[in-house]
């Protein structure tokens, strides 16, 4: 469904992503794990075209979307929940959710209200805080809001960048469970970028391991979990 071929991203002379290729099939949860600075976030930013690519191709549902502007990539059904959540801090929670449906120009008011109600069902905390500014929410609530805002787009694929970053263990647990539910209940394909390899692999079907701009390993989840080298480097065992 989503395919990156020889993707390269450079910041000046720094090669953050050095020509990687990977693929996500419909219905999968695929994770890209790796330590800080491995080029995971840059990869996602390259796909959604908020970062210029130095080379390579991105194919989505058979269509070359390599050089589409960011807002048209959203129209295709690719949702990117960025690292650090990027909530609109001075918009209310509800306005943030409204912004999630920004690209849905053909949606009726009733459909919008319906979707909003569904989000409030899934995230009761957001309903309680619907009229507060997004910036006043706690980290966990902001992450929920970022995901809910993404779901308002009815995405075909959701790319989540470090959704567990900076959250308390209990919240991490909740977010990971939520991602699995989005995949299973809504049928949304997931590309999950995480430093928390153990958590990511607990729900993923397949995984890629990135190190200094390259993919150094890719396999099914069971294989990755049991790989001794990986366990030592990323899973904190051994």
């Amino acid at each position: 469904m989503l395919k990156a071929e020889d993707l390269k991203i450079h910041y000046g002379h720094v090669e953050a992503v050095k020509g990687i290729s990977f693929e996500v099939e419909a219905g999968e949860i695929v994770t890209i794990i790796g330590s800080n600075g491995a080029g995971k976030s840059s990869t996602l930013r390259g796909i959604s075209n908020i970062e210029d690519k130095a080379g390579g191709k991105v194919i989505f549902q058979g269509e070359d979307i390599t050089s589409l502007p960011a807002h048209e990539i959203v129209d295709k059904g690719i949702c990117h929940v960025p690292e650090g959540r990027h909530i609109f801090s001075q918009l209310t929670v509800e306005e943030n959710l409204y912004m999630g449906s920004y690209s849905k120009t053909d949606q009726t008011k009733a459909e919008y209200q319906d979707k909003l109600a569904r989000m409030y069902d899934i995230f009761p905390r957001l309903k309680e805080r619907r009229n507060q500014d997004g910036g006043n929410l706690s980290g966990g609530e902001q992450q929920m809001l970022a995901i809910a805002r993404g779901l308002m787009m009815d995405p075909v694929i959701m790319m989540l960048d470090e959704p567990s970053l900076g959250l308390a263990p209990l919240l991490v647990e909740q977010i990971i469970k939520l991602i699995k539910e989005i995949n299973e209940d809504l049928g949304t394909t997931i590309l999950l970028v995480e430093q928390n390899a153990r958590k990511a692999l607990s729900i993923a079907h397949r995984g890629y391991v990135m190190e200094t701009g390259n993919i150094i390993m890719s396999d099914r989840r069971e294989k990755l979990i049991n790989d001794p080298k990986l366990a030592e480097a990323y899973l904190g065992v051994g």
Partner: peptide
């Protein structure tokens, strides 16, 4: 209005605005 809220959003966070489909330019 949609355009108006979009302008407020992009004034706060351009990347995020792009990622929800605002034609920032």
């Amino acid at each position: 209005t949609r355009t108006g809220i979009g302008i407020r959003a992009l004034s706060m966070d351009q990347d995020a605005a792009k990622l929800v489909g605002v034609n920032v330019d």
